[in-house]
């Protein structure tokens, strides 16, 4: 209960600028200021681009990897599985310094493409691990039937396994999107110009000018910056729950 009250506080006070309860009537000026006078919409756009692209790339790579680990017998499959699990545990904090240099050498520093490139490093291990669990539950027999009928491996994957494992794909997509939308460290350290920033970094960094905190627009930004994720979350709650437990326990 204590937790819920804390959380409600966090949410409640996020909602509007006036301390404690809204007793002066709802003000929209902070939102108007945010949308009109700050690059807020640009940041949201950047976040969307980076998240959508890295999610698509990661899910495709992970589907292939997870399928080969779950179904195909080949030398080293087991070691690859372990390697992917280990990278799943590697925290971004360990790699952000050298990665910033790699990104720089590739000429991608200060652009959202650096994020499209680096986000899959933590998304792919996660999604592969998640999808591996789902693929293992698909009965081998229906695949074998298709192969007897002359389907190639790739055809069985796209036409048989993927439709059956749709919940897994949705789950991986949602989590990838959430993780990349919420990412902060890489976005903060790889990008410095305001126009290329993502929502999380822009709101926490660029809305604060000097010693005066624009609490109103800061909070408005925090609320709006969370909106896409919360919408996705409300609609797909069950997928989040299963992804969260599968990611850690399976």
């Amino acid at each position: 209960m204590l937790v819920t009250s804390f959380k409600d506080d966090g949410e409640l006070y996020d909602l509007d600028s006036i301390p404690f309860w809204i007793y002066k009537g709802v003000v929209l000026s902070h939102y108007r200021f945010l949308l009109a006078e700050t690059p807020f919409l640009t940041w949201i756009g950047n976040s969307l681009t980076a998240s959508v692209l890295s999610t698509i790339i990661s899910v495709i790579i992970s589907v292939l990897a997870a399928y080969s680990l779950a179904r195909l017998n080949f030398r080293g499959a087991h070691s690859f599985g372990i390697a992917i699990f280990i990278t799943y545990l590697v925290p971004p904090a360990l790699l952000f310094l050298p990665l910033s240099q790699v990104v720089h050498k590739l000429g991608l520093s200060d652009s959202i493409w650096s994020l499209v490139l680096t986000y899959p490093t933590f998304l792919v291990p996660f999604c592969t691990w998640l999808l591996l669990g789902y693929f293992k539950t698909v009965p081998r027999e229906i695949e074998e039937c298709a192969m007897v009928d002359g389907a190639t491996r790739f055809q069985t994957l796209t036409k048989i396994v993927l439709p059956v494992a749709t919940p897994g794909i949705i789950c991986a997509t949602l989590f990838s999107f959430t993780l990349s939308w919420n990412e902060f460290l890489y976005a903060l350290t790889f990008i410095s110009s305001t126009a290329q920033k993502t929502a999380t970094v822009g709101i926490t960094g660029d809305l604060i000018r000097g010693d005066i905190y624009y609490w109103g627009s800061l909070m408005a930004g925090a609320v709006l910056g969370s909106v896409p994720i919360v919408i996705a979350y409300v609609f797909f709650l069950d997928y989040y729950v299963s992804g969260l437990t599968a990611g850690a326990i399976k």
Binding site: A199, G221, I229, V230
Partner: peptide, 10 residues
């Protein structure tokens, strides 16, 4: 689910 950086602002 909500971005940590933003909820931390709250």
């Amino acid at each position: 689910v909500i971005p940590t950086a933003l909820s931390t602002l709250g």
